[in-house]
Amino acid sequence: MTNLKDTNMIDRDEIAGSNGRRFMWVIVSGLGIVMAAGAVSGYLAAHEAQGGGAIGAAGILTLCAFATIIIGLAFAIWRNVSKMKASNEGLTRRETLNRNMIYGFVLIGGVIGLLPAFYDTIVGNSDTGPPLLLADSPMPPAIALMLIFFWTVIMPIIAWFWHKRAIDEQEASAYRDGGYYAAYALLIGAPTWWMLWRGGFVPEPDGVAIFMLFALIWTAVWFWKKYR
């Protein structure tokens, strides 16, 4: 709330005020492209596992649908980036570093997601099961070691640098709020799922799903608090 509602101060910052939403769409569209590419990869792997050969009309239709989604999301990225540039938003050095790191995270995340997906496709590791990255089946040691190295060595370094250099106190506050929401969702949600399973109401708790939901809630609240 501000006491300046009656003034007519319009500067470029007011035009750029909604860039947070555009930035969110760029990130969501980027992730959508990675997921759609993963789905195409999984579809082709399943097709190969079932004997391969020519893809039928239904298959072509499915691949066309995914291609349309990817093109649509790429268009959304281009449009939102254009609008962000047109708003002439001024970014501080800290914010520029912050955004570049987020773009880097999406890129690295995409590569980490796609590498096992390509492994699935090329080696035919997965036919009907979940993608290699999310499955609980054995994984090639080289890929496992690579992912472990990233998660236990690279991630903490990036996180340390991120919190020390890239974010400010408003974003740190958004992170803390996200952590509260995610922690309470975990503390309440996980035992509830467990009890529901023991009562025979739902399937067995899935650790990967719980982890993904935890991360998703944290990220969503962080974004909402930072850019609202």
Binding site: D13, G90, E95, N98, D168, E169, Q170, E171, S173, Y227
Partner: peptide
């Protein structure tokens, strides 16, 4: 601009915007 003030305070433009609009108390 908000970015100019952000540089002086070593915070992001978004933080300045959030303080100005009362969405965040410094």
């Amino acid at each position: 601009s908000q970015a100019d003030l952000g540089e002086h305070l070593d915070v992001s433009r978004q933080a300045v915007n959030a303080i100005e609009t009362g969405k965040y108390d410094p």
